[in-house]
């Protein structure tokens, strides 16, 4: 005999809490941490990719060590290192206090992301034909000028889709920071349902926010990919380009 199932789900509560101040603040924090961490990650990724490609064994060795360490340990431990481990080693409580939830989170996520981004950046650089570097050097550019003006702009096209993936993952992985006490979307959600026990309703609210953020960024990514396909004969269609094409009654590009 089947057990008697009684579902209790207050759909109205979802609507009620969707724009609750604590939830909106939490979502904002999630977005802020994700964007800042990703920017740090991309910057570190470029630096470490160049180090890995360097002929100097000191540079490439250091970069390899960093990537090996970060990819081989859980992000949660890395967060704990920054929020609890390192401050605990510092005698001066004033300095230890500087390791706020927010700072610990963006540094830990940024450093973590840097290891993954460096692989993406490296693959992007390697995807550009060596003749491009030769041609850039032949007009008198230095290595870094050639990278910046010639190689990176082309590598970006290859780097963009996996970087988009990374950012979407980042948006969701920031929820790990709730474990060190940062009040982001998930922790805000848990704080509310700890009081009112509307667990499922609030988890749905949080999911709606995560979905909204990831959807917006997926659309932005597609637009960016189209914008970067400049100089190509076939540019990828996106939501907006299709809508524009329908409104304008045109075909193709």
């Amino acid at each position: 005999m089947l057990p008697f199932l009684a579902f209790q789900f207050e759909a109205d509560a979802v609507w009620e809490f969707l724009f609750n101040e604590q939830i909106v603040d939490g979502a904002w924090m999630t977005l802020k941490v994700a964007v800042i961490s990703q920017v740090i990650g991309i910057t570190l990724g470029v630096v470490f990719a160049l180090m890995r490609l360097s002929k100097n064994p000191l540079f490439s060795g250091f970069a390899n060590f960093y990537i090996w360490f970060i990819r081989g340990t859980p992000a949660l431990i890395q967060l704990f290192f920054l929020k609890f481990g390192i401050p605990s080693m510092i005698g001066d409580p004033d300095i230890a206090r500087e390791f706020t939830f927010f700072r610990a989170a963006i540094i830990a996520f940024g450093i973590n992301e840097g290891a993954y981004m460096s692989e993406i950046v490296r693959a992007g650089i390697l995807s550009v034909e060596s003749g491009q570097m030769d041609a850039a050097k032949s007009v008198g550019m230095t290595y870094l000028q050639a990278m910046r003006r010639i190689v990176f702009p082309q590598a970006m096209r290859v780097m963009l889709p996996p970087t988009g993936n990374e950012f979407i993952a980042m948006l969701k992985n920031t929820s790990l920071a709730s474990a060190i006490g940062l009040v982001e979307l998930l922790r805000a959600t848990r704080q509310i349902y700890a009081r009112n026990f509307l667990i499922m309703e609030l988890l749905v609210v949080a999911s709606i926010w995560y979905l909204a953020m990831t959807t917006v960024f997926s659309i932005l990514q597609a637009e960016l990919e189209r914008a970067m396909a400049v100089g190509e004969r076939e540019r990828p269609e996106t939501l907006f380009s299709r809508v524009l094409a329908i409104i304008g009654g045109r075909r193709g590009i």
Partner: peptide
């Protein structure tokens, strides 16, 4: 490197496969 680049700037090179910057 900056010296190498300076000297190279005065030497034009045209490649078999053009190597134009596609972007």
């Amino acid at each position: 490197e900056p010296e190498v680049a300076r000297k190279r700037a005065a030497i034009g090179m045209v490649f078999q496969r053009f190597n134009l910057f596609p972007h």
